[in-house]
């Protein structure tokens, strides 16, 4: 990710003022405000979250106050079936969305990278789903997918697939998660396409020319030149997608509320349900802490991959 040369400079000292000596300190001053801002912003809520997660604080029972109860919430969490089910759903949701979105995003980027007239316009139009507020899209899809009154249901019906509409797309545990995955892919694929297109544009034309002279066909070009060269861009977009999807909440909450049953209750929804809906701040915070930990581990894994890639 960082490719800049190391800051060792071997420049002659010029002028009365020494710009280099100044820069030794100035470099810290430049970074300080942002760093302080970020660190305070992380430490304060994280500390508060950790503390809350070790208390019994419930806004339903404010009369009981806030008592320190050590790791009790975590002990309870480890025995909580709903938590494991939620963890599993989150994993399925995150992995499925990220992989479909990445494959689709890369395909779109490749498809729209052939220097054909109109390509830029198509790419731009495809960006729109990414730019609309997620909660608007959530309602839009919820209404579109509704049986009878929803336009998607009516179209499927017209195609003779009334099996689907009769059971209701978001109303059946069999199809709800799949529908949510597709909607999130729809929303996020333009971002992936954009990052990968960026990567594709860095590949010098000469490499392809040389390879063609050597008799490589299209598939070989893709397999041995294009994909390896955009691997880093793909990795970055997959990383951002994973983080984003892992904490995705709004569209899920609007479209299914975590239902039917528990079938779409990802961690973010479970945490909302406990921490905000039932106002059990203590227990909700412990779920949040675990969620944070999982996300942190995932990002360390990605960071390793990316550092390896960058070296």
């Amino acid at each position: 990710m960082q490719t800049g040369a190391s800051p060792k400079m071997t420049l002659p000292h010029v002028g009365v003022l020494n710009p280099l000596r100044g820069s030794q300190r100035v470099k810290y001053w430049l970074a300080l405000p942002a760093f302080v801002f970020i660190i305070i912003g992380i430490i304060y809520p994280t500390g508060y979250l950790l503390y809350n997660s070790m208390t019994n604080w419930s806004l339903t029972r404010l009369d009981l106050g806030q008592t320190f109860i050590g790791l009790d919430n975590y002990v309870k969490l480890l025995a909580d079936e709903r938590f494991y089910s939620s963890l599993g759903i989150t994993a399925t949701f995150t992995i499925a969305t990220t992989s479909i979105q990445t494959v689709l995003g890369v395909s779109l980027a490749l498809l729209l990278n052939r220097n054909i007239r109109g390509e830029g316009l198509v790419r731009t139009l495809l960006l729109i789903p990414w730019l609309v507020a997620p909660f608007i899209s959530g309602f839009n899809f919820r209404f579109m997918m509704a049986p009878n009154i929803g336009v998607i249901a009516q179209m499927l019906d017209a195609l003779g697939l009334d099996v689907i509409t009769k059971t209701s797309i978001l109303g059946s545990p069999k199809t709800a998660l799949g529908a949510l995955i597709l909607v999130h892919v729809w929303n996020g694929v333009p971002g992936t396409m954009l990052v990968v297109t960026g990567g594709l544009k860095t590949i010098p034309e000469e490499i392809y020319l040389a390879a063609r002279v050597d008799g490589a066909d299209r598939l070989q070009l893709l397999r041995y030149i294009t994909l390896p060269l955009v691997r880093y861009a793909i990795l970055i977009s997959a990383f951002l997608t994973t983080l984003f999807i892992f904490k995705a909440f709004e569209m899920i909450f609007i479209m299914t509320g975590g239902g039917p049953g528990d079938s779409t209750e990802v961690l973010a929804v479970y945490q909302y349900w406990v921490g905000i809906r039932t106002l059990n701040i203590g227990y909700g915070s412990s779920i949040a802490v675990v969620q944070l930990l999982v996300a942190f581990i995932v990002s360390i894994v990605y960071a390793r991959l990316m550092f390896n890639e960058a070296e």
Binding site: L49, L243, I281, S285
Partner: peptide, 19 residues
Amino acid sequence: MMLVIFTARLLPPVAYIIP
């Protein structure tokens, strides 16, 4: 610092709404 910066993106809302 890069890792710290990532972490900042992971905080769930329940963590900061009340404080």
